[in-house]
Design a protein around this nucleic acid. Structure first.
Length: 843
RNA sequence: GCCGCGGUGGCGGAAUGGUAUACGCGACGGACUCAAAAUCCGUUUCUCGUAAGGGAUUGAGGGUUCGAGUCCCUCCCGCGGUACCA
C-alpha cells in the first residue's frame, strides 16, 4: 500500500474514531465526580428524598470478588436514575468491621485487629472506587469506630433500663472451636455457622436481649411490608414460629402406684399442646432431660441410677446428635412417678426423653401416640399403649394426624377436631386445668460473646449493687488494647486478663467493681447502621430526629437473602425498640427489600479461594473497564437469581459498548445541539426507516425507566441492545436521538456515557441532566404484523396499519391465499380479533 | 416432613392468556487481511423435505379456553429455608 494511503487512513482514524479507552476515561470521570460533588447528598433540599441502601460489607482480608459489587451496581443504577429524575438521593457505604476473621487474623499474626481492619477497608474502598459508584463517602461509617459504637452501647443501656437486656444462666450454644457462645441465629443444622463445628449446650452466664417480647409485632408488621419479597417474609414467619395452643396442667399423683412422702399433690407438670382435642388419647407424659422437676423428684424415682445415667448421656450429647444423627428416640421411665389425667383422673406414667425440647413450650408434652408421629414412634419402641380418639386412620400402623371426628373421648365424642378443641379448652379453663397459650420458636437473643473484637458491653458488676449500667456520659466504653487476643476458653473474653481495665468503681456506690468483659455479637453494629448514615457525626444523639424524619425509612434496601433470619430480624427488632423509646419516627426501617442473586464461578461452584475460581473485579476492570463489568453484571440474568460468571458474556458486554461507541461515526454533525429542534413524526416519512428508529427509541426509554424501577436490568439492557442494533442500520443518526440513548444508558455505564455526552458538545455532567421522558405517541408504531390463526395455529402474517378496524381486518384476511387454503372452503364459525396482535378464525 | 421458589434452544435467559425461543454467548458460513486477531454481514429450537412447505416443542400427564410457557388439578425433578417446635 502506498505510504500516502496509509497516512490518509490514519488521519481518518484519528479524526473520526477516537477509540473507546475505558482505562483513561474512567479514572478521569471518577475524579471529576468527586471534584464536582456529584455524589454528595444534601440534607437540606426541596427535592423528594430517596434513601437507597446496600447491606454494608464486612471488609475481609481477601478483598472484593466480582460477586460483591453486583448489588452495589444495582443500587447505583437506581440511584443515578433517581438523581436524574429529580430526587435527593442518599446512597451511602460503610463497614461492618467487628467480627471473627479480623480477630483470628490478629491471633495468628499478632497484629491488632484494628490495623488489619483499617488495611482491609482501604483495599475495599479502593476497589469500590474503581467501579464508579455514587457513594457519598463523607457519610462513611465504621461499626468499630468508638464514636459509632458509643450509640450501639447507648441503645444496649436503654434496653437494660427497660428490662429488655438481662443476664441469664440458661444453657446456651457454645462453639468449642471459636470458644464463644452463639445465638440461635448463628447456627446451621446445630453447627457453628462460621466454623462448622457442632455446638454444645452449656449453662453459662450470658447477656440476653428480650427479642421475644417483640415477636408478635415483628410477625404482624410483616403484613405492612408489601414491597418485601414474600420468600423473605415467609422465612421470618417460620423463624418467629408462632404457634397457638393450650397449656394443660397434669397434677402429680400421690397414688399407691407412686407411693412416696407427700408434698406432690401441689405440684403439676404443665404441658403445651396444639391438640387439646386429643386429651383423652394421652397414654403417657414426657418431660425433657433438662426439666428441673427431675431433680426435685429424685427421691421418689425408684430407678434413679438408670435415670441418672440417661441424664448424663443427654447432657453430653450435642444438639446435633440429639437431632440429625440420633434418629431413634430414646427415653427412660420415671418409675413411681405418675400424673393424673385432668379430666378422668386416671394415673399416667411419666417419662424422660430427649425428643422433648427443654426450651420450647413448657419443656413437657402429653403423649398421644395415636395422633402424633413422634409419640407413636416412642410408644412402639417402649411398648406403650396407643389409644385412638380421632376416627379416620389406622392407628395400629401409623399415627393419624389429620382432623376427624372424636371417639373414645367422653364429652367430646362426635365432635369435629376444631369443635373438640374449643370445647376442651372451655372445659379446662372452667376447671382451672389449662388455658390458651401462644408459643414462639424465636428465642431471646444471646447477646454476649467471649471474644475480643466486639463492642464492650457497658455494664459494671458491683458486689453490692449487682449489674450497674455505665453512666451515659462515660460512653463509649472503649475497647482496651490487649497483648493477647486469644479467647480464654473459660467463658471469659480476653478482656478479663486486663486487670487495669476490668477493675473499676461502681457508678452507683463508688465501691470496687469489675467491668463486664463479654463483648457484643457482630450483629449489634449492623442492627441500626442505616440510621447513622443520616447523621454520622452527631455526638449528641444516635440520630437527629428531624433529619431522621426526613430520610427515614430506607426506601430501598438491597442485599443477600442469607440475612433473612439474622440481620433482618435483629434490625427490625432493634428499630422497633428505638421507635418505642422515641428515638426514631418510623416503626419499620426498610420499606422495600430486594435480594441479590449470587454470582457463581465459571465452573458453577461458589467462588472461593479453596477452589481457586475467584475473579477479582480489579482484573476485569483492568482488561475490559468498569462500565463493561457493570453492564455485564446487570445483564447476566434476573437480578435476584444466582448465575455463573462467564468471561465470554463479559466480553459481549464490552462489545455492546464498543458498538455504541462507534455509532458516533453515524452522527449527523450538521447542526449544533441547541439549534436543532426535536424530531417529531410529522417531519419524517412514515415509510422512512427513521420512523421505526424513533418508535424503538421511545419504547426503549419507557422500558428502561420501568425496568430500572423494578430491578429488571437484564431486559432493560436487552432493549438498549435492540436500539443499538436499530441505530447501526441507519445511515445517519441525529444528535438528539443519540443523546437520548446515551442518557438512558448512563446509569449503567456512567463513565462511558459522560464521555459520549462530552463529545456531543455538552459541558456539564450528564447526571445533572433531566431523565428523558418517553412520548407514548412516538412509541406507537405505524404498522404491525397481524398474525392469522386458524383453529389456534398461525397460518399467515400480514403487515397492516396500526389503526385498522376490526371489519377491515376480517375482510382483509379472507383475501389471503393461505387463509383460503386452510379454510378448505368451509365457513368460519367465529372470528376473534385481538387489537394490534392477531385474529383467530374458528372453523 | 413442612414452607417458599423454580424447571423454556448447545449455554445465560425473554415473553400484560394472544406469532414461544427477544437480547446475549457459543457454533457455522462469508467479507476484510499475506495471515491471524479484532470488526462487519448472514445462518442457528428440533425434525421431515432439494425446495415450497409441513409436523413437533416450554419437566410429565390431564383440564379450562377460539387460543396456555402463563390459569386449575395430579405427579416428577432441582434450588433455598426450616426441622423431634408437641
Amino acid at each position: 500500500m502506498p505510504f500516502c494511503l496509509i497516512l490518509a487512513k490514519l488521519i481518518l482514524l484519528f479524526a473520526f474514531m477516537k477509540k473507546y479507552n475505558p482505562k483513561e476515561i474512567e479514572k478521569r470521570w471518577q475524579s471529576f465526580w468527586l471534584k464536582k460533588g456529584i455524589n454528595k447528598t444534601d440534607n437540606k433540599s426541596d427535592k423528594p428524598k430517596y434513601y437507597i441502601l446496600d447491606m454494608f460489607p464486612y471488609p475481609s482480608g481477601a478483598g472484593l470478588h466480582v460477586g460483591h459489587p453486583k448489588g452495589y451496581i444495582a443500587t447505583d443504577v437506581v440511584a443515578r436514575m433517581k438523581m436524574m429524575q429529580g430526587s435527593n438521593v442518599l446512597h451511602p457505604m460503610g463497614w461492618d468491621a467487628f467480627g471473627l476473621p479480623a480477630e483470628n487474623y490478629a491471633i495468628a499474626n499478632k497484629v491488632h485487629p484494628k490495623v488489619a481492619t483499617d488495611k482491609n477497608i482501604a483495599t475495599f474502598k479502593k476497589q469500590l472506587g474503581k467501579i464508579g459508584f455514587t457513594h457519598d463517602w463523607s457519610r462513611e461509617i465504621n461499626t468499630t469506630d468508638p464514636k459509632y459504637y458509643k450509640w450501639t452501647q447507648w441503645t444496649f443501656l436503654q434496653m437494660f433500663k427497660r428490662g429488655l437486656a438481662y443476664e441469664s444462666n440458661e444453657p446456651v450454644n457454645w462453639c468449642p472451636v471459636d470458644k464463644t457462645v452463639l445465638a440461635n441465629e448463628d447456627l446451621e443444622n446445630g453447627c457453628c455457622e462460621r466454623c462448622g463445628s457442632p455446638v454444645e449446650r452449656r449453662p453459662m452466664r450470658q447477656w440476653v436481649l428480650r427479642i421475644t417480647k417483640y415477636a408478635d409485632r415483628m410477625l404482624n408488621d410483616l403484613d405492612k411490608l408489601p414491597k418485601w419479597p414474600t420468600a423473605i417474609k415467609e422465612m421470618q414467619r417460620n423463624w418467629i414460629g408462632k404457634s397457638e395452643g393450650t397449656s394443660i396442667k397434669f397434677p402429680l399423683s400421690d397414688s399407691p402406684l407412686g407411693r412416696g412422702r407427700g408434698g406432690l399433690a401441689n405440684q403439676v407438670i404443665e404441658v403445651f399442646t396444639t391438640r387439646p382435642d386429643t386429651l383423652f388419647g394421652v397414654t403417657y407424659v414426657v418431660i425433657s432431660p433438662e426439666n428441673k422437676l427431675v431433680g426435685e423428684l429424685k427421691i421418689k424415682i425408684k430407678n434413679w441410677s438408670e435415670v441418672e445415667q440417661y441424664l448424663e448421656q443427654a447432657k453430653t450429647k450435642s444438639d446435633l446428635e440429639r437431632t440429625e444423627l440420633q434418629k431413634e428416640k430414646t427415653g427412660v421411665k420415671l418409675e413411681g412417678i405418675f400424673v393424673k389425667h385432668p379430666v378422668t383422673g386416671e394415673e399416667i406414667q411419666v417419662w424422660i426423653a430427649d425428643y422433648v425440647l427443654a426450651n420450647y413450650g413448657t419443656g413437657a408434652v402429653m403423649a398421644v401416640p395415636a395422633h402424633d408421629e413422634r409419640d407413636f414412634e416412642f410408644a412402639k419402641k417402649y411398648n406403650l399403649p396407643v389409644k385412638e380418639v380421632v376416627a379416620g386412620g389406622d392407628v395400629n400402623s401409623a399415627a393419624y394426624t389429620e382432623i376427624g371426628k372424636n371417639i373414645n373421648s367422653d364429652f367430646l365424642n362426635g365432635l369435629s377436631t376444631s369443635d373438640a378443641k374449643e370445647k376442651m379448652i372451655t372445659w379446662l379453663e372452667e376447671h382451672n386445668s389449662g388455658k390458651k397459650q401462644i408459643n414462639y420458636k424465636l428465642r431471646d437473643w444471646v447477646f454476649s460473646r467471649q471474644r475480643y473484637w466486639g463492642e464492650p458491653i457497658p455494664i459494671v458488676h458491683c458486689e453490692k449493687c449487682g449489674a450497674v449500667p455505665v453512666p451515659e456520659k462515660d460512653l463509649p466504653v472503649e475497647l482496651p488494647k490487649v497483648k493477647n487476643y486469644e479467647p480464654t476458653g473459660t467463658g471469659e473474653s480476653p478482656l478479663a486478663n486486663i486487670e487495669k481495665w476490668v477493675n473499676t468503681k461502681c457508678p452507683k456506690c463508688d465501691g470496687p467493681a469489675k467491668r463486664e468483659t463479654n463483648t457484643m455479637p457482630q450483629w449489634a453494629g449492623s442492627s441500626w447502621y442505616y440510621l447513622r448514615y443520616i447523621d454520622p457525626s452527631n455526638d449528641k444523639a444516635l440520630v437527629d430526629k428531624k433529619l431522621e424524619k426526613y430520610w427515614s425509612p430506607v426506601d430501598f434496601y438491597v442485599g443477600g437473602a442469607e440475612h433473612a433470619t439474622r440481620h433482618l430480624i435483629y434490625a427490625r427488632f432493634w428499630h422497633k425498640f428505638l421507635f418505642d423509646i422515641g428515638a426514631v419516627n418510623y416503626e419499620e426501617p426498610f420499606t422495600r427489600l430486594q435480594n441479590v442473586g449470587l454470582i457463581m464461578a465459571e465452573d458453577g461452584r461458589k467462588m472461593s479461594k479453596r477452589w481457586g475460581n475467584v475473579i477479582n473485579p480489579d482484573d476485569v476492570i483492568d482488561q475490559y473497564g468498569a462500565d463493561s463489568l457493570r453492564i455485564y453484571e446487570m445483564f447476566m440474568g434476573p437480578f435476584a437469581q444466582a448465575v455463573a460468571w462467564s468471561t465470554q458474556g463479559l466480553i459481549g458486554a464490552r462489545r455492546f459498548l464498543d458498538r455504541v461507541w462507534h455509532l458516533q461515526d453515524k452522527l449527523d454533525m450538521g447542526m449544533s445541539p441547541k439549534s436543532q429542534s426535536p424530531i417529531s413524526k410529522s417531519q419524517t416519512n412514515p415509510k422512512d426507516q427513521n420512523s421505526k428508529l424513533i418508535t424503538v427509541l421511545h419504547q426503549t426509554i419507557k422500558k428502561v425507566s420501568d425496568d430500572i424501577e423494578e430491578m429488571r436490568f437484564n431486559t432493560a439492557i436487552a432493549k438498549m441492545m435492540e436500539l443499538a442494533n436499530e441505530m447501526s442500520k441507519q445511515e445517519k443518526i441525529s444528535k438528539e436521538n443519540f443523546a437520548l440513548f446515551v442518557q438512558i444508558l448512563a446509569p449503567f455505564a456512567p463513565h462511558f456515557a459522560e464521555e459520549l455526552w462530552l463529545a456531543l458538545g455538552h459541558k456539564k455532567s450528564i447526571f445533572t441532566e433531566v431523565w428523558p421522558k418517553y412520548d407514548s405517541e412516538l412509541a406507537k408504531s405505524e404498522t404491525f404484523t397481524l398474525a392469522v390463526q386458524i383453529n389456534g395455529k398461525v397460518r399467515d402474517t400480514i403487515e397492516v396499519e396500526s389503526e385498522i378496524s376490526e371489519a377491515a381486518v376480517k375482510e382483509l384476511i379472507m383475501k389471503s391465499e393461505k387463509v383460503q387454503k386452510w379454510l378448505e372452503g368451509k365457513e368460519p364459525k367465529k372470528i376473534i380479533y385481538i387489537k394490534g396482535k392477531l385474529v383467530s378464525v374458528v372453523v
